[in-house]
Design a protein around this nucleic acid. Structure first.
Length: 424
RNA sequence: GGAGUAGUACUCAAGCGGCUGAAGAGGUGCCCCUGCUAAGGGCAUAGGUCGGGGAACCGGCGCGAGGGUUCAAAUCCCUCCUACUCCGCCA
C-alpha cells in the first residue's frame, strides 16, 4: 500500500512514476480529493465529539446533584444525529480510499529500466556455458516418463491437468533438491528455517499484496472461513510479523521456508501445457528478509547472490535479468529474475524471482520497527526471493544433464542426497 | 463433534452504564538513602493511530474484532475470532 500522505503531497509525481508500469493512474487525483473531504469531515466530527464528551460527562454530575438535565439532553440529541450522518459519510469515503489504495501497485524504484514488457528487461549477466549436445536432446516430458520418474497421465487420473506424479528417483530428486537448498540457505547463508501453514486467511493474502487484485489465481477452500491454499511462501512468511513493532536489533530477519505452492494459473490457459514447467502445485524454497529501509537494497543483492549460489553449485547455466517497469510485480519496487537454460526450449526460463517491496507490504501488513529505543516506529522493508523453484530445477537438471542413452547424470552436490550418480 | 470458561495496558489483575482515558501489584526508567555483593524510600510509566498546529501542545479513536442500544459502554445486546478445561474421535 502506498503512503496516502506521499500521494497527497505529490500526486503528479506519484502518478508519473506509476505510469511507468504502462497503465494510467490518473485516478489518483480523485483519491486526493476524497482524502481532502475525509480530513474536513474528521475535523468537524472531532469537534462535535469533543463537545459531546464534555457535555455527557456533565450530565453525570448534574444527575448526581439532582439537577434538571432536559435542556442539555435536547442539544445532545441534535448533535447525535449530525454525528451519525457525518460518520456515515466518513466511513464510505474511507472505504473508497482504502479500496483504491489496495488496488494501486507499488511505485517502481527510480533507477529501474523503463519498458513495456519482458522484452525490455535488460540482461544483467550470464553465468555458465550452454551445454553442447552431440545428440538430439529430449524435453523433460519425454525423459521423465521414459525413466519412469514422472507420470503425467496418472496424475491427471487422480487429480486434474497440470498435476504430476513424481516417482522413484524423480521423487528422490525433488526431495534431494529441497534438502540441498534448505541446507545451503540455513547453514551457509544464515537464514532461519520455517515450516508454514499451507492454508492462508484473506487478511494475510491482502497484506502480502495478492488480494484483492489477484484473487482469481488463488485456490479458495469451500469453507465459510475464507481460507486459501498457499500461493507462495512469501505470503505466510511476510505475515509472520504482521501487526508487530520490531526492535532495531532484531533486524534484519532472514527466513528460509520450503512450501508447496498452489496456483490456478488463471491467465495462462494454453501456455506451457506440457511437462512440469507450469503446474497448479509445485514446491519452492523461498528466502524472506525484513530489513531497515537503509539496508534493503544491500539485502536484495544478498538474496540474489544466495539464489544464484544454488544454480552455481548445481552447475546449471543461467542468466539474470532485471525486470523493467512494465513487467515488475504488483507489490514490488525492483525485481531480478533468474532464468535457467532449458535445452528443450533452447532458451532461458524463469526459475526464481528476487524482489524488494520496500515498505509496500509492510504498510499493508503493518510491520514496523523502532530505529532507536524511544523513536517513533517506522515501516520495515520486506524482500523475498526464490531459492529456488524446485520443479523447474528438476526440469533444468533432467534436460541439461541428460546423456545420449537417455540417462541423467546427478549433479555432484546432489550425490550425497541422492546416494547415486546417475538416473537411469 | 458435544459441554463449559475466559479474552482489560510490557506482565498479572480490579472494575460490570457516568466520579475509570482505566484501581492495585510486578516489571522497567530516573532520583534519594545506604554502602558492599542485599535491601529501603520517592517519582514516572498507553502504546499506537488519525486530525489540527511551525512547534510546545490540543483533540478523536482505543479494555480480543466488528456491529447495535444509550445523551453516555470495558461495563447491556448480537455476530465473529482466539485461548483454555472436560468428553468423544484421530495422525
Amino acid at each position: 500500500m502506498l503512503d496516502l500522505k506521499r500521494i497527497r503531497e505529490n500526486v503528479d509525481g506519484v502518478i508519473k512514476r506509476l505510469n511507468q508500469r504502462g497503465e494510467d493512474f490518473s485516478y489518483l487525483h480523485e483519491l486526493v480529493k476524497h482524502d481532502e473531504e475525509r480530513r474536513e469531515i474528521i475535523s468537524a466530527l472531532e469537534t462535535l465529539k469533543a463537545q459531546r464528551n464534555a457535555t455527557s460527562k456533565s450530565i453525570g454530575k448534574l444527575k448526581r446533584e439532582g439537577k434538571d438535565i432536559d435542556e442539555v439532553m435536547a442539544t445532545l440529541e441534535h448533535d447525535k444525529v449530525t454525528i451519525q450522518q457525518l460518520e456515515k459519510t466518513l466511513t464510505s469515503l474511507e472505504n473508497s480510499i482504502e479500496k483504491t489504495l489496495l488496488m494501486t501497485p507499488n511505485i517502481p524504484h527510480e533507477n529501474i529500466p523503463i519498458g513495456k514488457d519482458e522484452d525490455d528487461n535488460p540482461l544483467i549477466k550470464t553465468v555458465g556455458d550452454i551445454p553442447k549436445f552431440t545428440f538430439e536432446v529430449k524435453p523433460h516430458w519425454e525423459l521423465g516418463p521414459e525413466l519412469n520418474i514422472l507420470d503425467f497421465d496418472r496424475a491427471t487420473k487422480m487429480s486434474a491437468s497440470r498435476f504430476t506424479v513424481y516417482k522413484g528417483l524423480g521423487a528422490r530428486l525433488e526431495r534431494a533438491l529441497i534438502q540441498f537448498m534448505m541446507d545451503l540457505h540455513s547453514d551457509t547463508h544464515g537464514y532461519t528455517e520455517l515450516i508454514l501453514p499451507y492454508i492462508i486467511n484473506r487478511k494475510s493474502m491482502v497484506a502480502a499484496g495478492q488480494f484483492p487484485k489477484f484473487e482469481d489465481d488463488a485456490f479458495k477452500l469451500v469453507d465459510d472461513r475464507d481460507l486459501y491454499l498457499n500461493p507462495t511462501a512469501e505470503v505466510p512468511s511476510i505475515n509472520m510479523h504482521r501487526d508487530e513493532i520490531l526492535t532495531a536489533d532484531q533486524l534484519p530477519i532472514r527466513y528460509v521456508a520450503f512450501t508447496t505452492a498452489f496456483r490456478q494459473e488463471a491467465g495462462s490457459a494454453g501456455r506451457d501445457t506440457r511437462g512440469i514447467i507450469r503446474q497448479h502445485q509445485f514446491n519452492k524454497v523461498e528466502l524472506i528478509q525484513f530489513t531497515t529501509p537503509e539496508q534493503s537494497y544491500e539485502a536484495l543483492d544478498c538474496i540474489l547472490a544466495s539464489s544464484e549460489q544454488v544454480l552455481k553449485q548445481l552447475k546449471l547455466p543461467y542468466r539474470v535479468v532485471e525486470l523493467c517497469s512494465g513487467d515488475i510485480g504488483f507489490a514490488m519496487a525492483k525485481t531480478y529474475d533468474i532464468e535457467v537454460y532449458i535445452p528443450a526450449y533452447k532458451t532461458y526460463r524463469e526459475i526464481g524471482s528476487i524482489s524488494n517491496a520496500e515498505d509496500y507490504q509492510a504498510r499493508r501488513a503493518n510491520i514496523k520497527y523502532r530505529p532507536t529505543k524511544d523513536a517513533k516506529p517506522e515501516f520495515v522493508h520486506t524482500l523475498n526471493g526464490s531459492g529456488l523453484a524446485v520443479g523447474r530445477t528438476v526440469v533444468a537438471i533432467l534436460e541439461n544433464y541428460q546423456q545420449e542413452d537417455g540417462s541423467v547424470k546427478v549433479p555432484e552436490v546432489l550425490i550425497p542426497y541422492m546416494k547415486i550418480d546417475t538416473i537411469k
